[in-house]
């Protein structure tokens, strides 16, 4: 089975559509959304509508910190731009969408995998995975062999064998990486809708459960209309500008 794993869509319609179109060409049969469907971007209602339909067809959909905030108001950890975007998003969503986001689970376990938005020790604390130490902490918090998470907007891959520290690997796009052996793997997805690794292309990955490998992809899309809509919505200008540089 080929599973597309998408995280941090952040209401970016163009990036989302580009990734989904690519995933169809990749013969993906199942979808997993690791949270942060909304926040920052100008198309929250469109994204939620589409993801609701995926959920009805059996997709895994998790709650991210922005999804939580969009239903309850901004939380303390958010910067000024994120707060403004959340206030705007709250009003841009209909009641049913807010209810959908509010009822999403914080994590899901499936076969040998854990899906979670952020670091796994305390999913609701929204911690970041930024290095081998934080990755190791996350892997030690689960018995699952493979963890998929997002939240930092930077694609990363870690592996760890028993009694050894976690090791970082920078995944090369379009290369199938086998998640082999008696070791744990932690695959951090980049962001679909707001990459921050200085590469503005949308990021997602495909897991092949038969071949037991994961392939990271970067999908170029036209971000001009995305930025335009952010401006028109009166959202902070930086949220549009950063899309072009991937920071």
């Amino acid at each position: 089975m080929r599973i597309a794993i998408l995280s941090d869509i952040h209401a970016n319609r163009e990036a989302f559509d580009a990734c989904l179109a690519h995933a169809v060409r990749q013969n993906v049969e199942r979808y997993v959304f690791l949270g942060d469907l909304v926040g920052y971007g100008a198309d929250p209602q469109y994204i939620v509508d589409r993801v609701v339909r995926f959920a009805e067809e059996g997709a895994v959909v998790l709650k991210g910190n922005h999804d939580e905030a969009a239903t309850r108001g901004a939380n303390d950890g958010m910067n000024e731009y994120a707060r403004k975007a959340i206030d705007w998003t709250f009003n841009a969503l209909d009641d049913a969408s807010r209810k959908f986001l509010g009822e999403l689970p914080g994590f899901v376990e499936e076969e040998d995998r854990l899906y979670v938005h952020s670091e796994a020790t305390a999913p609701s604390d929204w911690r970041y995975i930024t290095d081998a130490a934080t990755a190791e902490r996350s892997m030690r918090a689960t018995i699952q062999r493979i963890t998929f998470c997002g939240h930092v907007h930077i694609p990363q891959l870690y592996n760890m064998s028993p009694q050894k520290p976690a090791q970082y690997f920078e995944p090369k796009p379009n290369t199938a990486i086998p998640l082999i052996g008696q070791r744990q793997w932690l695959a951090v997805m980049g962001a679909v809708g707001q990459p921050r690794d200085k590469n503005p292309a949308a990021a997602y990955a495909v897991l092949d459960t038969t071949k037991k490998d994961v392939t990271y992809f970067r999908i170029a899309y036209d971000m001009q209309p995305t930025a335009q809509k952010i401006h028109e919505a009166g959202l902070p200008a930086i949220l549009a500008a950063r899309l072009f540089v991937g920071r």
Binding site: L157, N159, S161, Q167, F169, K172, T175, I177, G181
Partner: peptide, 10 residues
């Protein structure tokens, strides 16, 4: 060169 080096790491 495009896959994690498990040996170097351990």
């Amino acid at each position: 060169l495009e896959l994690p080096d498990l040996l170097e790491a351990e």
